[in-house]
Computed example of a mutant assay.
Amino acid sequence: MRATLMYEAGDVRIENVPDSVIKHPTDALVRITASCICGSDLWPYGSMTRADGPARMGHEFIGIVEDTGSEVTTVKRGDLVVAPFAISDNTCAFCREGLHTSCSHAQANFWDGQAEAVRVPLADGTLVKLPVAADSALIPSLLTLSDVLGTGYHAAVAGQVNERTRVTVIGDGAVGLMAVLSAKRLGAEQIVLMGRHQGRTDLGLEFGATDVVSARGEEGIEQVRELTGGHGTHVVLEAVGNMPAYQQALGVVRPGGVISRVGVPQYEEAPIGFGSLFRHNLRLAGGPAPVRAYIEELMPDILNGTIEPGKVFDATTNLDGVPAGYQDMADRKSLKVLVNP
């Protein structure tokens, strides 16, 4: 079968690899019908060394179950399913607490979904059956349940967004836009989107942002504070992952507020001492999103048309076009690329 491999920064190839097969009785074999390129894939695309490659890529997909192990009971051959980006059994103590990314029984949390097929461990706990056909117009939106919608929603939930909350979202990528949509869904009274790309921020306004601030650094911080009576916002949803974004979050969060980070951190140290978090009773939240915990909650809003998160996909390709898709996203020519193998 064909799959995506990254050899080093800027070097993505589509190659033949051994077919995925059932290895354990709890496995399912899924033929992928829709996948995508994630903003987090761009970090290794910009920095991976050849010593770390080649690596299989992709962690978001929808597909049709082709075969199952003898112990799988919740899905069967022919079912259309969505897979969250982290494997989980959905039954351990952490999963029952909604923390599927810390599942006690998942030996490997992430996988390689930019391919023609994939073996899914712990299929009963991981896969969720979809009540639509593979050619449904809802597929792009349902695919966001695999990662970006659940990640944006996790940021808002971890930040305790509610109808009395003023929110700043840092980052106008797909996750940032899903954080806007999620804050709106939870009733935030004000949502300031900090982003510099008008096509994206326009979509953010459609998703529920009340204000857009394109400036960065101290100028951007000052503009957010002007929009919020000088105090900043109760919650900051940081969807980028670099140090300037974290520093910007510190600058716009209100005393007593929360910084909720879901952008994959590209740094090991961040200020948390007296002069930053401690002095103003600030809290730090977020982390890898347990998107499996949110799928059943969010799916009805997609099925009934209340939300349309699939609008974040602004380009579509097949597997052959994936290398160019990486480059287009890295160059900010595309927001998020949908892949139909």
Rank of each mutant, 00 (worst) to 15 (best):
V81S: 11
V81R: 02
V82Y: 04
V82W: 08
V82S: 07
A83S: 09
A83E: 06
A83V: 13
A83Y: 08
P84C: 00
S88P: 12
D89R: 01
D89Y: 00
T91C: 13
T91R: 09
T91P: 08
T91G: 08
C92R: 00
A93C: 10
A93Y: 14
F94A: 09
F94H: 11
C95E: 01
R96T: 10
R96I: 03
E97C: 05
L99A: 06
H100W: 01
T101W: 07
T101Q: 14
T101M: 03
S102E: 14
S104K: 14
H105A: 04
H105N: 15
H105T: 10
A106H: 02
A106K: 02
Q107C: 12
A108D: 15
A108E: 15
A108T: 10
N109K: 10
N109G: 12
N109R: 13
F110G: 12
W111S: 13
W111V: 04
D112K: 11
G113T: 08
Q114S: 08
Q114H: 09
E116M: 13
V118K: 06
R119G: 08
R119W: 03
V120G: 03
V120D: 00
V120Q: 00
V120F: 02
V120P: 01
L122P: 07
A123V: 03
G125R: 01
G125E: 00
T126F: 00
T126H: 00
V128T: 15
V128R: 06
V128M: 14
V128C: 07
K129E: 13
K129P: 10
K129F: 05
P131D: 06
P131H: 05
V132D: 03
V132E: 08
V132P: 10
A133K: 12
A134L: 05
A134H: 03
D135N: 13
S136H: 08
L138P: 09
I139C: 13
I139P: 09
I139Q: 04
I139V: 11
P140S: 03
S141A: 13
L143M: 06
T144A: 11
L145S: 03
L145R: 02
L145A: 07
S146D: 08
L149P: 11
L149V: 05
L149S: 09
G150H: 01
G150D: 04
G150T: 02
G150A: 09
T151C: 11
Y153L: 07
Y153I: 05
V157H: 07
V157D: 10
A158S: 14
Q160F: 10
Q160K: 15
N162D: 15
N162A: 06
E163P: 08
E163Y: 14
E163V: 11
E163T: 11
T165W: 08
R166A: 11
R166K: 13
T168D: 09
T168C: 10
V169Q: 09
I170D: 01
G171T: 03
G171H: 09
G171K: 13
D172N: 14
G173V: 07
G173W: 02
A174S: 15
A174P: 10
G176Q: 02
G176C: 06
L177A: 09
V180H: 06
V180P: 05
V180S: 05
V180Q: 07
L181I: 04
L181D: 01
S182W: 02
A183I: 09
A183D: 01
K184Q: 15
K184D: 14
K184R: 14
R185P: 05
L186C: 04
L186P: 09
L186K: 07
G187W: 11
A188M: 12
A188Q: 01
Q190L: 13
I191M: 09
